[in-house]
Design a protein around this nucleic acid. Structure first.
Lengths: 190, 190
DNA sequence: CGTTCCATGTAATAAGTTACATGATTAA
DNA sequence: TTAATCATGTAACTTATTACATGGAACG
């Protein structure tokens, strides 16, 4: 599943400008699927030249001109075909978790800083998600959307609760100064 | 944080062969940080030519020769320096969640299939994590390791519970046949 | 007077993915 | 006999990241 398929899926909900899509990627989708925004405009132009979307330029006064992208019938079919085949992957890439697991040789102060930073990040996404849920509450027609927002929210809450519960225990077991590693990878694999 | 820094961090726990590291990436680390394994051997060779690790070739009978990589003092310092600076990112890339949120226009049968597939995946990682925790239980010296495994396990359990609780509600709201999209992105952003 | 919002892009480089390539041993 | 484990890599291709580039309007 690549950027173009993501864009087509978003456009299934209706026409939008690049900027609209960018906002959607940064607010709604960031909690769910981290996509590179910088590739947005080139990708939209490619979709247009492939005939999967149409592009209509609209002049505005006292604002830059915008381009409204809309799915063509081919684009709609192409999107559905892509989402019907292929198995979706669920990937986590948490440098934070990795460091906690694989770098207990760092000074305690650094670990403490990382934990607090992560807690702050979780609170941020938690509030971002709940803000969206509050907004969506008015309109009733977001089957999958509200399911997934609830899911993301539940996971944020779970991570927060776990960290707060075991935070002190983790820090207690780390020496104040940077320590030496112990054991070998072979030992760990045994 | 790139592949090389991940490799250095793993080698902080002791010398290992490429294959050892590969196994570690696939079992322990896969739940935490999804890294490309294919880049492993080239990256190890680059680390060796940069003087951050040493490489010792060991012949074996009735097995292919292996190469044991070990951190140099420079490599150790370089690893700590990298992990002390830079802010770790926590990214989720779930095509599964995205499809549920942005593609309720897919046929119900496909959604059902995706949900069941995800549930099976969660069970797998849950068991993989618990297997590792059981193994680690014997040795006592994995401060961060057990913290993070507990965290990953708690999140798996949270996701599983949420999906099982709301699964039927989600499916009930999706029409049997592929439906039309409604609303616009602008509407959703309001 | 500085920052955020709107609105669009390009270019260079770094990284990740997929497929290819080999080959003996051991357990089901 | 089929698959999995051990053990290493290369090459081509597709993505992602980072930095650059512009410019007016609105808000505090």
């Amino acid at each position: 599943m690549n950027t173009k398929e993501v864009l087509l899926s978003i456009l299934m909900r209706g026409p939008a400008t690049g900027y609209d899509i960018k906002k959607t990627l940064e607010t709604r989708i960031a909690n769910i699927l981290d996509v590179s925004v910088s590739n947005l405009y080139p990708a939209l132009n490619e979709l247009a030249s492939e005939g999967l979307v149409t592009c209509q330029r609209v002049e505005q006064d006292s604002r830059p001109a915008k381009k409204i992208y809309e799915l063509t019938e081919t684009g709609r079919e192409s999107c559905i075909a892509a989402l019907m085949s292929g198995e979706p992957r669920h990937r986590i890439r948490s440098e934070f978790w990795f460091i906690l697991a694989y770098a207990p040789f760092l000074p305690k102060e650094r670990i403490r800083q990382l934990v607090d930073q992560r807690l702050a990040e979780i609170c941020e996404s938690f509030e971002r998600i709940n803000e969206i849920r509050r907004t969506d509450g008015d309109e009733g027609n977001h089957e999958g959307q509200s399911f997934v927002l609830g899911l993301a929210s539940a996971i944020c809450e779970g991570e927060r609760a776990y960290i707060e519960q075991y935070r002190e225990m983790l820090l207690k077991n780390i020496p104040e100064q940077a320590g030496a590693p112990r054991g070998t990878v072979e030992g760990l694999m045994a």
